[in-house]
Design a protein around this nucleic acid. Structure first.
Lengths: 332, 332
DNA sequence: GCTATATATCTAAACGTTTAGTCTAACCGT
DNA sequence: ACGGTTAGACTAAACGTTTAGATATATAGC
């Protein structure tokens, strides 16, 4: 690999001068600059970003800690984050925790060692200690999708309560009284917030909550399928089910299919999260659409804003959801 | 940030000794080691990976250049790659080219400057020069999903020709004679290979190729929808259509839906790529399933193998596809 | 008791940049 | 002609590690 020293030698200048023409940080005579550039060209020189990082104490990398990149929600979120990062000359290092606290810990340590300039994190939820510690020692962190009580970091989240409320409200307005809900992981904020919205709508109509209608799929398709089967096999089967994320929705639809039921004839469905295929197949799915791309984008925007300010702000940004009525809900 | 020097001072030893206990590269007396570890603990010391990289000339990062992380195929591939990378102590830097040559060039330069230890690349296809150049100067590169003629790098690919052949064969066996095909990007190897399989099956039955049945969606849902609408609006509409990747499939299904047609009653469909939702909605989609997770995993396995060998091998690995007959094809 | 060997530790140079400080020569105004 | 300014270039220290080689001390063999 050719170094700045090689370039300097070839151009007959000092390494400092080469550095100045690369970065434009000081005046250098036009003809000298030209000679340096020619030398760089000829030697096919590319500055060593590792050395630059060591010296400048900035890696231009931001770490993205999510549960699972193969989940379309996070994949799209990361796309938004990456697009925004690249525009600002940054790259993204991705880390899949699989919702395991141990993985999250390992990754946070790793990113910290790699001296990333910041992180966006969808926390598993049980780990405030390390995150707090990182923030204290100056690491820039933005929470995405989920928040954590007690950590003072910006967070970019969906309007979960409102979205879930709308979905439930819609079902109630269509005459449904027994409404099941398939939730994801018990202890993350998205789950609790969506449950809250569901409850608010029910309460509004004076419907007593039936605990047997509230089931957890633990954010896995298989788990959602099992939970849904149990839910749908009850003698007093709900007439409608609200699945609170895309994996839950797939599990629920699979269960309906496997039980030989039809949607919406036998059971109405609303899903949280919208994707291309939701409209293209039968039934066209009624969904509460989140905007994961925007979440990712806003998160790194905020990260950069804080990176350039001495004092950091810790806003809680809420990205609105959109309710998309399609064909998976039947009027009773 | 606390440095190795701080630890050394606190433990009353030289920095070398601290380094030795961190890396276990030389004998150090047990009690000294204990003292050093205590100091590290107390100071909450985490080695600076940037400095380590500069010195050891290894970043433990591999670059992943793909077209679009929000495409589930690539998202799953990246998951496989990341899982394998992490097991070996490596991280993944992701780069979305959006199928644009210019982006690919920028990213390859960037990764090269960042001194990644290797790259896995799904090339846009028109850019052999830079990739060849990188390989020549010692960069470890593994091609994924697509290959490039003339570059001597390992490649991990699906059995595209065979998969497409099977799908077409299946349609022929079900009595279809006019079979449309919706292809992705014209110049990438996956497209040409899948077209080849389609042709082989048709030729086998002595069916003359009808160019009007071969359309391109340019690997975008919108493009696929438009192309499909044109295809299905022909007076001599094909009785079956083969969509050669997941985006094409969604575009095709959307077109069918928008035209008020029903699948499989009016038109039979087979898709390339299988995903959770393909089985859960109506019609349950008959697909040729790829194994993107395995592609990603094998790719970084090969990368690591070559990283540790003086002489590198450049195998072309083919990952088998699985044909999954479900409900979207009608017998004529 | 002496050499040979093994063990534990240290010194200092490197990895490839950036950048504060210094130097030189040219230019300017008076 | 001379001090003051400026433009352009250079020197060298620093960023935080690793590691080859030197040094010192203990252990063993005879």
């Amino acid at each position: 690999m050719t170094t700045i020293r090689d370039v300097a030698r070839k151009a007959g200048v000092s390494v400092a001068t080469v550095s100045y023409v690369i970065n434009g940080t000081r005046n250098v005579a036009p003809e000298t600059a030209a000679r340096v550039r020619a030398a760089m060209e000829e030697l096919n020189y590319h500055p060593n970003a590792v050395a630059q990082s060591l010296r400048t104490r900035s890696t231009h990398v931001i770490g993205a800690v999510i549960s699972d990149i193969s989940n379309p929600f996070f994949a799209t979120l990361i796309k938004g984050a990456e697009d925004c990062a690249r525009k600002n000359g940054y790259s993204l290092l991705i880390c899949n925790t699989s919702e395991k606290l141990e993985n999250e810990l390992v990754y946070l340590q790793l990113l910290s060692r790699k001296r990333v300039d910041g992180m966006i994190i969808a926390p598993t939820g049980k780990n405030d200690a390390l995150i707090k510690d990182l923030i204290e020692r100056g690491m820039q962190i933005v929470l995405i999708d989920r928040k954590m009580e007690g950590v003072s970091a910006p967070a970019v989240l969906s309007e979960n309560e409102q979205g879930a409320y709308q979905a439930t409200r819609y079902l109630l307005d269509h005459g449904h009284r027994r409404i099941g809900i398939v939730l994801g992981l018990p202890h993350v904020s998205t789950t609790t917030e969506r449950l809250l919205g569901y409850r608010r709508a029910l309460a509004e109509d004076g419907i007593a909550e039936d605990p047997s209608l509230i089931v957890y799929g633990h954010s896995q398709v298989g788990g959602a399928r099992e939970a849904s089967v149990k839910l749908l096999n009850r003698p007093d089967r709900p007439s409608a089910v609200f699945a609170t994320n895309n994996l839950m929705t797939i599990g629920l639809m699979t269960a309906i299919h496997d039980l030989g039921l039809r949607c919406p004839r036998d059971v109405s469905v609303i899903g949280f999260d919208d994707f291309d295929w939701a409209a293209a197949f039968e039934p066209p799915l009624t969904t509460v659409a989140q905007d994961p791309y925007l979440i990712g984008e806003r998160a790194v925007e905020i990260l950069f804003a804080n990176l350039n300010q001495a004092h950091r702000s810790t806003p809680e940004i809420r990205i609105p959801t959109r309710f998309l009525p399609r064909g998976s809900v039947q009027k009773l």
